[in-house]
Amino acid sequence: MTQPPPHGWHQQPPPPQQGWQQPPPGWGPPQPPKKSKAPLVVGTLAGVLVLAGVVTGLVLHLNVNKDSGTSKRADKLPSLCGNVSETALAKARTTNPNGLMSRETKLSKGVRTTCSWNQTKGVDGTGHRTTDVSVTNEREEAESAFSRSISMNMANTQGTPLQKPIEGLGDEAVVILVETKSAFTEMSVIVRKGEMIVEVDLSGWDAGLFANTKPDPAELEAAARGVAEEMVAKI
């Protein structure tokens, strides 16, 4: 049973509702702002770019550092090529005989023997190396042939040739370094011993982190000179 209000109090009827029964548009409690997706998009894009960079770098590294040698061949070279030992060829990082580039050629006043080696896969490392040796019997024209070989090497237009003499090798000898704008580098040792002219050309480049790099000239010179010394000692 409904109790009457206490004395002195009067229960007021609720005021009549007028107008909107619901808050008008734009009124009412504030709504939380919608979260922006921009940071997520930017973060995702950055992650994709980083991943792409890592993948690209890995591909470049593997390509540059791949073994550029070929399987060991059993090519027979001219007998004179046997004057160069496996030890000297290993130092030059070219232990694979290349029969296609090796031959004996008769000249009007002598014979020229050419010997060629390149890299053996799994043995001579990455980068690139080629060793070419020519031995020419020039008879009475050895001195002029020696000067001619030097002039031809110094006329190399692919780079800037630098020349210096070598003491204690044959009757006279020089070493010529040719550096190019690329990583390709060539080292030539030219020796005259009596009527014989020996030229050793060692060329190539080294593998860097993401691109080819120039070899150490001192390493090339030591390797080329080692091959020349062995050939000269046995002719």
Rank of each mutant, 00 (worst) to 15 (best):
S68C: 01
K121D: 09
T70P: 00
E172S: 05
N98D: 12
T157Q: 14
L58Y: 13
G57T: 12
V59S: 08
T44E: 02
F146D: 07
G168A: 11
P78F: 07
E140H: 11
G47C: 06
T160L: 12
T136Y: 02
P165K: 06
G125R: 05
G170R: 05
K72G: 06
V48A: 13
Q119D: 05
A145S: 12
G122K: 11
A155T: 10
S116T: 06
G82H: 01
V135K: 00
E141W: 11
N83I: 03
S102Q: 04
S149F: 10
N137M: 12
G47H: 08
E86H: 12
T114V: 14
V178D: 10
N98T: 06
S102G: 07
S68A: 12
S147C: 06
P78M: 07
V84T: 08
R112C: 04
S68R: 15
R112I: 04
N98G: 03
V135M: 04
E143H: 13
S149K: 10
T126P: 09
V41P: 00
K109G: 07
N156I: 06
L60C: 09
E172R: 08
K109A: 09
K76Y: 07
N118Q: 11
A145L: 04
G125H: 05
T70F: 11
S85C: 02
L100G: 14
V55Q: 08
K66A: 13
L58G: 14
G110L: 01
G125M: 03
W117P: 07
T120L: 03
T70A: 09
K72V: 06
P78Y: 08
K76E: 13
E172D: 02
V41I: 15
M101Q: 12
S144Y: 03
L60T: 15
V84Q: 03
A173R: 05
A173Y: 04
V50A: 12
V59M: 08
L169N: 10
L49Q: 05
V123G: 04
G110W: 01
K121N: 11
K66Y: 11
L80H: 04
R148F: 04
